[in-house]
Every structure is written in C-alpha cells, then in structure tokens.
Write a protein that binds this DNA or RNA. Sequence first.
DNA 1: TCTGCCACTTGATCCGGATCAAAGTGGCCC
DNA 2: GGGCCACTTTGATCCGGATCAAGTGGCAGA
Lengths: 246, 246
Amino acid sequence: MTELFLEERNCDTCPIRHRAVCSKCEADELELLDSIKYYRTYDAGQPVVWAGDEMDFVASVVSGIATLSQTMEDGRTQMVGLLLPSDFLGRPGRAIAPYDVTSNSDLTLCCFRRKPFEKLLQDTPSIAQRLLEMTLDELDAARQWMLILGRKTAREKIASLLIIIAQREASLRKRRPTDGSSFELPLTREAMADYLGLTLETVSRQVSALKRDGIIELEGKRLVTVPDFEALMAETGDDSDGGLPV
Amino acid sequence: MTELFLEERNCDTCPIRHRAVCSKCEADELELLDSIKYYRTYDAGQPVVWAGDEMDFVASVVSGIATLSQTMEDGRTQMVGLLLPSDFLGRPGRAIAPYDVTSNSDLTLCCFRRKPFEKLLQDTPSIAQRLLEMTLDELDAARQWMLILGRKTAREKIASLLIIIAQREASLRKRRPTDGSSFELPLTREAMADYLGLTLETVSRQVSALKRDGIIELEGKRLVTVPDFEALMAETGDDSDGGLPV
DNA sequence: TCTGCCACTTGATCCGGATCAAAGTGGCCC
DNA sequence: GGGCCACTTTGATCCGGATCAAGTGGCAGA
C-alpha cells in the first residue's frame, strides 16, 4: 500500500533510488541518495531496533517482512505495524524508536542515515510530499486495524487479516487478488495473534474453522488458497465494497 | 498533542493564522490563509461529514470535540480518532472522507478550501513539514490506541482513556496533569465505549469501580477528579514512565 | 407540578475467547 | 535414521465482558 518512490517492475535494489531514476526527481538527488544509503540484512526473528533506542537511520524494506510491536510490562504484546517490501520504516525528525521492530523472515533494508535524509526532505518537496502520502496511508491502515481490534469477532479478525495480506501481496505484484490465488502466510500463528489481539490457540482454531467451512484451503501450515474471494470477504463483516479504497 | 501552528495563549480564532503571524511563515502566507479560510459551527451530535462523502475542505478544530468513527453494516461502531481544539481534520490530496466525522459538543471549525490549501502546502515547505509532523503524531496515537484495543482489560482501557483525556486537556493549557486536577469528560458513556471497544454498560461499571476504589472522584456524571495520577497510571498497565514521549 | 426522555447505573445470565494441558507435525542437525 | 525443537493443533474448563433487563435521576417542555 505504501510504496515509496517505487515502480516495482524495474526496481531490484532500493525503491528510492529507482524512483529517483525514473521520474520526478533530478539526477543529483540520485547521487545524494546513493551517497547516504546502505543496505542491512537481518535473520528471521532478529530485532532491528528496540523501543526507546536511538535510530540513526530511516529505511525502505527491500525484501522480507518486519513488524512493529509494543509490549506491556507483563509481556502482553500488540503488533501495531506490518512492513512488507517497499514499505517505509522510521520517522524523519524523530531520533527515538517508539516501537520494537523485528524481522519476521530474512529481511533486507535499504537504509539512509537520518540527518542527510532529513536534509534531502527539506530540499526536495516532492519527496516530503510522497512521505506525507505514505504516512496518511499508514494512518488509514492503522484505523482500519482499530476497527478490527475493537469490534470484530475472532473469525472476522482472521478473515480480515487474510484479506489484508492477500491484497498487499497482490498489490506488490500490481494485481488484484483473484479467486483461486494463493499466498504464503508470512506470520506464525503467534504473530497473527499479536496482530489481531487474540491468543495463538484461538487463531489456530479459527483458521481450522475457515478451512473446515471451505472458505480457505491450506497446504502445509502456511500456504493459503482462497477459492472464492467474495466468500472470504463476507466473513470479514465489512461492507461488500471491501472497505477503504486502496 | 497535534497542535497545528498554534500557540494557544494568543490564538483566539484560527490556529494556522496565529502561527503565520508569530513565526516561521511570512506575511503573504497569512494573507493567503486569510483569503481561503472560513468558519463553520456545528451543534452537539451533528454529523460533519459521512464516510464516502466528498470533502472539499480541511479544517482545524477551534473549540469543541469531534470524533472520527467507522460503522459496520450491522451497526457495530469503532471510534478511530478524537479531535480536540487545535487538532487537524482532513487530508490534503484526498477528496473522499474515509470516516464519519461527528461533533460531540458545540463545535467550531476553521476551514480551508482544499484546493488552495494544497497549493499553499506545495508552496510552503514549512507547512508541509508541520503537517507531516502532525500526521506522525496521529499515527503514534493510533498505534497506542491499538495496544489499548487489542490487549488491555476493561479497567485498563478506562484508566488509559482518562489519562489520555487528562493529558490532552492539560497540554492545551500548556501544563502537565497534576494530582487533584479535574476535567470534564467530553464523551458520553456510549462514546467512551465506542472508543475503547466495549459496551456502555461495561464502561459504566468500570468507571464506578474506579470511583469505588478511590482512584478517581466523580462530581455528577462527567466531572472527574484524579487525586493521585500515579495511582491512575498504575491502573493502565503501561510502563510507569507513561508510555510514549509526548 | 407532572410527564417523558435521555444518559446512566445496576443486576442476572450467557457466551466467546482465554487459559491450562496434552498431543501432533515437520524441519533439521548430528 | 534418530531425536530434538519450534510450531501447531486439539481438548477441557474458566472467566471477563456482552447481553438482556430493570431501575434511577435530572431536566426540558407541557
């Protein structure tokens, strides 16, 4: 949903670099970006930053999955953000990370040192504007998520999450999700539970129930096939138009 | 938390106008702002816009309370935003309102027609930057809210909401909340329930319980006094440092 | 003063999801 | 090939908050 400066087809490294090449931005931006960027990789399950840490970079997800989460003293955790390739991590002007960031798979980030990136933002209104766009998208997603957390049943929550993942995977490929398409669940049952404000047992039970009812098919534990998107959509409790325009 | 261009002490009309006067922005901005702004007032309970409507303005809350909410087909409602004076409403570049906006009290908005405002944004990086700041604040608030919705007990939810309201009221007055301070609850029990993903009965019970336990005092139904902020904070389940830096 | 309404409180019961417990599955290292 | 470990499923029971229901208090309007 939030693709920063990206046209996916041609971008094999850093999303920002690509956009700098392909449109809107001038050549010297590209050079500046090149001069301040670097790549980092993380293993599955590895922390990227802890809440409260100083974060001296912002980054764009190149490949893999990362999550933002908050943990209470007694260990209850709530995921508050899900970062897929092309999503943006970090906040210009803010040194302290407000959430734990964790890689949920092998993860590659394209990082920019924060100070030069902020300077770039100031000098390049089009990038600042794009960042505002992306932040508004994130805010929409967060608010849609709030409806899920506050008012939906466990079954509706699972269905909603599956739809969200399917749509985001499809949009990475510049497609609409279609009947019969499959996707890999990028999250463990526990991570799904942390996303949805449930326990992992409830997630497991509801996934099994959706499978039993023929709404989804499962190959192994992670590969989901949706024979009929409308049927899955109907389980979310949302309006049939699919909620927010994306 | 999100005070746009505002220094409250001197601002008796529109927040943006004031900031244009007092700092960062030049005189011609002020004139442009003056030329595109206008005021609107709403009665308590009146809709400001419906989700899906075209919204041809952005606005700043001058006085009163407004809420953003989403409603499912079957009537379940989740509040996704709470707008206090100085908060910003609307999204440059986006014509369609994604949520219902409702006034929860007599409400005055300082509105800007969207197109000229967008032009102003493009021409005035400092305003664009400020808007990004505010959007990031809103995103933080939304994510804190997600933790409340997903993982907290009813009692913790109520305590968290009281703290949030107390802090925001205090910050409008440029103060920190102190022991013994009072504030008016700007929401009905039902609106609180919609905020917290509870029913109004549960809200009522938990407010009564906090009162019974001496954590809060109530005068009438709406006027809350907090004898000991630490004690209330302890009921939220958050770290003692009060969560996010604000 | 009475009436009706609205916001709220309180009580009784129910149920969905949490919790506690025990197996089952599969990937991978030796 | 064996065994371990992380992840998942399934079962039994419990409990917090929803639901259904009744009652209170304040206040606007007749």
